[in-house]
Amino acid sequence: MTADAPRPPAPAHRLPLRWRVMDRIEAVAAALWPAAFRRATPWAFLAPALLLVGILLIGLGYVISDSLHELNPATYRLREEYSLGNYAAFLDRPVYLLVLWRSLLAAVLVTAITLVFAFPYAYVMVRTRSGALRKLLLVSLFLPFFIGQVVRAYGWLIILGKQGLINQALEGLGLPAATLIYTYPAVIFGLVQYMLPFAVLMLAPALTAIHEEVELASESLGADWLRTFRHIVIPMAKPGLVGASVVVFTLTLTDFAMPEILGGGTNDFIASTIYDMFFQLSNPGLASALAAVLVAVGSLIVALVFRVAGTGTLGLRSGS
């Protein structure tokens, strides 16, 4: 047979159903999104996220704008003229600075304590050879997500209350009842318990990325487990640690429910104060100023962390 000879017709056969469905989908996609639009494809995927961020920015714009108008108590409307009065009120009243400081301190404490607990949890979950243990740790990790923050806080009231389980046990042992709730440590405790799964979820991918052989190599070169952990695991897990820190820090800084429920009304965070200004005192100007300060302080700290330690698992490339 020569090269020019016509080829025999291909035998007729039906393509698998899945292929045909995919072909149809591709045809519809090509009709809806022609090849000329391909350069815009990444933007199309980004569009929903950009829309959400855009809405957020518009909201933030309104917040900043409202923060520049003082309340007229005669009409309970914001005055027309621009003013820095709400920011001056924030600086004049020590209570606002104190509550902001309390929120920041809590964010730092909760982040540090949570990482201490989350790291070994994530490490064991990633490294264990026992499938049963891994499943148990995963289930224990995800179970709290099905229980809302408010319900969990009320759960702590039942356990830590003056007539709660712990105090009943103390009473049974002939010991005096302890004050375990409506205190700052109680709020920190509740927040750590709430943040733990977030931190583990941020740490696990970073730990998975560290090949076990690297640790073995370190140990084979004479390093004990502690030195390997300190000089190999921790530095290599830095992206996860940074990501977890930022997530836990920002969530704690803006938390509302735990301080409200476990704080007994005397351990408010800045979010509670913003709520009070907005809803109880009907002063959206001052509430917006406090919110703007919170956003600015939180953003500055996170930017500083990114600058010093990189964006961690939150970034596309380490160190970017």
Binding site: R93, L98, D268, T273, D276, L281, N283
Partner: peptide, 18 residues
């Protein structure tokens, strides 16, 4: 009450959140 509640609330907060 309407005129003074914001002032009283701020003072109350200052004392009990302090």
């Amino acid at each position: 009450l309407v005129e003074n509640q914001p002032i009283w609330f701020e003072k109350f907060n200052e004392i009990f959140q302090g």
